[in-house]
């Protein structure tokens, strides 16, 4: 008996018998020059009804505390920032995380055109689950991490790592195709842009 694998591959080959595999794939166009990328990034993130604050490296500690406003936060082990009263994630269970209000992470890349932050879950961002279960996500992006558009991000990112692309808070268009924020993921996304 042939295996499903061999059978499917055989069907594919016979379906394409005589079909030339050569297809000229036109390159995807580049985005036009948008000028100040950080400004565009901030504007586009705000369009998703996420909150955005800009600050200097010296202001960061204070600003994060202000945004958390007393809420308890989980932080990844490599955050590199002192967050008062926070819990460092060393393998918290989902149930434990469900009892924590907020999470503070850094990011790998910010995409200006689409207002997206991408996490590649290095030690300064932590496991995927910690930026998912708590209801408030404070994400620190360095202005040097902001790129123009999707292709720039793809070129920088390593597919061997798990990636989470985040564009605004959790949302749905499932009711009458109208967007409402706040379903399963964090209902509030606060992006801090450091420059």
């Amino acid at each position: 008996m042939t295996s499903a694998r061999d059978e499917i591959l055989r069907r594919v080959r016979s379906a394409l018998d005589g079909v030339s595999p050569a297809v000229a794939v036109p390159p995807a166009p580049r985005a036009p020059d948008r000028g100040d990328l950080v400004a565009l990034f901030v504007e586009r993130v705000e369009d998703y009804r996420a909150e955005v604050t800009r600050c200097t490296p010296a202001e960061l500690d204070g600003l994060v505390a202000e945004v958390l406003n007393g809420a308890q936060a989980v932080v990844p082990p490599g955050l590199g920032l002192d967050v008062a009263g926070s819990v460092v994630d060393h393998g918290l269970t989902s149930i434990e995380l469900d009892g924590i209000d907020a999470v503070v992470t850094r990011a790998a890349v910010g995409i200006a055109e689409t207002g997206t932050i991408v996490l590649d879950h290095q030690p300064d961002q932590g496991r995927r689950v910690i930026s998912l279960v708590p209801d408030l996500h404070v994400c620190i992006v360095d202005s040097s991490q902001v790129v123009a558009d999707v292709p720039d991000a793809i070129a920088l990112l390593d597919p061997a790592r798990p990636l989470t692309w985040i564009s605004g808070p959790s949302a749905t268009s499932d009711i009458e195709l109208d967007r409402v924020e706040g379903v399963h993921g964090p209902r509030t996304l606060h992006v801090v842009v450091v420059a």
Binding site: G115, T164, W165, S167, G168, P169, R179
Partner: peptide
């Protein structure tokens, strides 16, 4: 969904 980017995209290998 008529958005510049959807809220979440996950990739894993």
């Amino acid at each position: 969904t008529g958005e510049r980017m959807n809220p979440y995209t996950s990739t894993w290998s």
